[in-house]
Design a protein around this nucleic acid. Structure first.
Length: 665
RNA sequence: GCCGCCUUAGCUCAGUCGGCUAGAGCGACGCACUCGUAAUGCGUAGGUCGACGGUUCGAUUCCGUCAGGCGGCUCCA
């Protein structure tokens, strides 16, 4: 008995002229329902078509399944339409914004009298469920003219605005459809129109093909993304091809919450943000301090190995310095307000580069001194808007492992390569391997960026060449450069896929001129150096936060605040373990004995919750045999290990800086 | 900064439709228990219910302002 051959999803089909794509899909034996359903087809030119599309001439198409990236977008965008219909059913006065698919879901923006409350979302979800069950079909309809569209959309002011900007090549126009104006009607079982929306499409054949969705939250969002526009109420939802996938997604979110560094920071007693100090200002507790110190010791030693000189500069400076550097006009709003003292304005520094420039300029420099590399832990203060402060990843006081390389123009590419390799090996040593590069360039339309076209082009090319040569994924970020030059940054992902900007390498041809930096060349002439800014961690705080999430608090042994905890089975075994711990401490291991009055089972539980890599347990058997018994964080055990071997084992694991384990498995 | 929600013990959370001594678990402390791999039992202390102002005979509860937090938007050197 042989199963009928089911064509591979990617196999092209021909839709004969005058018949629907759905017919062709059905004729090919492809599923119309379920988690692999074909929901749209793709034309040879890449354009997606609804299943009721009927070509005038034979057309070769590729079926698109609901679980493919395009299929998911169609599913989620269709879910957004169902949401919009539900909103207008429940709140008839609501006006429509836009409703695109996004990663893992969709949103739709509405202008409503009162912002949505959590109960409203429950109500809307219920109404959506009814619409899904009703099996409404989506029907595409082309407007004959702009006027026709405007007449129909007279009650939808935001849609009218979209109609008017149609033809622009920005994203809103793309949502409507460039070149033609189309509308999607929702039809009930009897073919009556129950709802509709200006939309490019495509859509699912039926609302019934939305098997699993959930409204997640509502929030305000500016119309067309501008602070100057009114705020609409945005409803976020998620939609999946099956209930299981929805469940898996919600589980992933719960996992994300479990490893949130803000939560773990309190649970593991690493850091806090006391209200008395102020928003976005962190204090590291002793255990967090250990990790921070390990990071700093590591990166200081590495910088010195890589040819950097360790320097230091003050936290405040007179205003003039930031005029010279050119920062003040751009960043005044994000700097803490000045302190007036003896007739001068002093600012908390928001960047370290001007200070390093003064070190460079403090005496005459020769081409023989270059590259000259200065490095420090520079603590800077930035007055981030109150709504954006977020745990350790967006703070108002942060320490950069900031360096500036002063080089000749010829040396710049080599130096940038050197810095990128440095950054890569650092990320590798900390066990972060899921990251990509971003190249931030200027926006030629903006007047924020200083310097000639040639300077920008040349600097951008140098960075781009090095970035491409690295073989890492490179994403372009037009308009994201600093005012003084383009940059490469590392966007690292934590274990749950969120990305954070970490390391940066920036090419600067502006500040050397502003500060009048120069060196004497071999021919005796005075030349201007190029300055390359670089931070390897980026911000120590942010890197710390990402590390916590990456390891979910279970740090590698070399970073763990407490590396070994001795757990006596009876109180009288404690002195024996104390001797063991003393030997470990002599080797530089962070070890302690749990002297609390709890039972040993409780001590194991506590150590487990603290995610301590090594538990060294000792009872009568171990004392008599001069051994300890290891229990590792993963629950595995190694019993009866001789003291000498145990010390050597811990020391070996810690010094190896291995980022996995330890384990007996 | 904008919109919405939230703030009760060190932590996580009940509760008060405006009314008498505001509760629990964990944690802390004390006593007993001395135990072989994720919570021993009993007891004790701990709160001007985020701050200030208003309404009220009476406010932790209702209203306002501020601070802090959360989710987005905008921003992010």
């Amino acid at each position: 008995m042989s199963a009928p051959r089911i064509p591979a999803v990617a196999d092209p089909l021909v839709v004969p002229a005058g018949t629907t794509a759905a017919d062709a899909v059905a004729a090919a034996g492809l599923p119309a329902h379920g988690p692999k359903a074909i929901v749209v087809v793709r034309e040879a030119d890449g354009r997606l078509r609804d299943l009721d599309w009927t070509p005038a001439a034979d057309a070769e198409v590729t079926p698109v399944a609901i679980d493919s990236p395009d299929g998911l977008d169609v599913l989620r965008h269709s879910a957004a339409h169902v949401l919009a219909q539900a909103v207008q059913d429940v709140f008839p006065e609501a006006k429509l914004g836009i409703g695109p698919p996004i990663r893992d879901g969709f949103y739709y923006d509405f202008d409503v009298e009162k912002p949505f409350q959590p109960e409203d979302l429950t109500k809307l979800e219920k109404r959506m469920q009814e619409i899904v069950k009703a099996g409404q079909t989506f029907r595409r309809r082309e407007y004959g003219s702009l006027e026709e569209a405007k007449a129909e959309l007279a009650n939808e002011p935001f849609k009218l605005e979209l109609v008017d900007i149609k033809g622009d090549v920005d994203s809103e126009a793309a949502a409507v459809g460039a070149g033609e104006l189309t509308h999607y009607d929702n039809l009930d079982k009897d073919g009556n129109r129950v709802w509709g929306d200006l939309c490019r499409g495509p859509h699912l054949p039926s609302t019934r093909l939305i098997p699993a969705f959930k409204l997640m939250r509502s929030a305000a969002a500016y119309w067309r993304g501008s602070e100057k526009n009114p705020q609409l109420q945005r409803v976020y939802g998620t939609a999946w091809p099956s209930r299981d996938e929805l469940k898996a997604y919600l589980t992933r979110l719960a996992e994300a919450e479990r490893r949130d560094h803000r939560k773990l920071g309190a649970e593991l007693d690493l850091f806090s943000f006391p209200d008395e100090i102020g928003s976005g200002l962190v204090v590291f507790h002793p255990k967090g301090g250990v990790i921070k110190r390990e990071m700093e010791d590591y990166v200081r030693a590495r910088h010195i190995e890589e040819g950097f000189q360790y320097v230091s500069s003050p936290h405040i400076t007179k205003e003039g310095l930031f005029h010279t550097s050119g920062h003040l006009p751009y960043y005044k709003d994000t700097m803490f307000p000045p302190m007036e003292l003896e007739g001068a304005n002093y600012y908390l520094k928001a960047m370290n580069c001007p200070m390093h420039n003064l070190i460079f300029r403090s005496r005459g420099r020769s081409y023989r001194d270059l590259p000259m590399r200065l490095f420090e832990f520079g603590t800077v203060y930035r007055y981030e808007k109150s709504g954006v402060v977020h745990g350790l990843t967006r703070v108002r006081g942060l320490t950069q492992d900031d360096s500036h390389s002063y080089v000749t123009a010829e040396q710049a590419p080599g130096e940038i390569k050197h810095l990128l390799n440095f950054v890569r090996s650092l990320l590798d040593d900390f066990g972060l391997d899921d990251y990509y590069l971003e190249l931030s360039t200027r926006d030629p339309k903006s007047d924020k960026f200083i310097g000639s076209d040639e300077q920008w082009e040349k600097a951008t090319k140098v960075l781009e060449d090095v970035a491409r040569e690295s073989g890492l994924d490179l994403v372009l970020d037009p308009g994201g450069a600093a005012f003084y030059g383009p940059k490469i940054s590392v966007q690292a992902k934590d274990a749950i896929g969120r990305t954070w900007q970490m390391s940066t390498i920036q090419y600067d041809f502006n500040q050397p001129a502003g500060f009048g930096l120069e060196y004497q060349a071999a021919d005796g002439s005075r030349q201007e150096p190029v300055m390359i800014h670089s931070a390897k961690f980026g911000s120590i705080e942010r890197f710390f936060g990402v590390l916590v999430e990456h390891y979910a608090g279970a740090f590698p042994a070399w970073l763990a605040p407490v590396q070994v905890v001795g757990i006596p089975i009876r109180d009288d075994h404690a002195p024996y373990l104390e001797e063991f711990v003393v030997r470990l401490r002599k080797e530089g291991i962070r070890a302690e004995v749990d002297h609390s009055t709890e039972r040993m089972q409780k001590k194991i539980r506590t150590a487990q919750q603290q995610k301590i890599p090594f538990m060294a347990i000792a009872g009568d058997d171990d004392v008599n045999g001069a051994t300890v018994s290891f229990r590792y964080r993963d629950g595995s055990q190694r019993n009866g290990v001789s003291i000498d071997e145990a010390v050597a084992h811990v020391v070996e694991v810690v010094r190896s800086r291995i980022n996995t384990g330890p384990s007996a498995a």
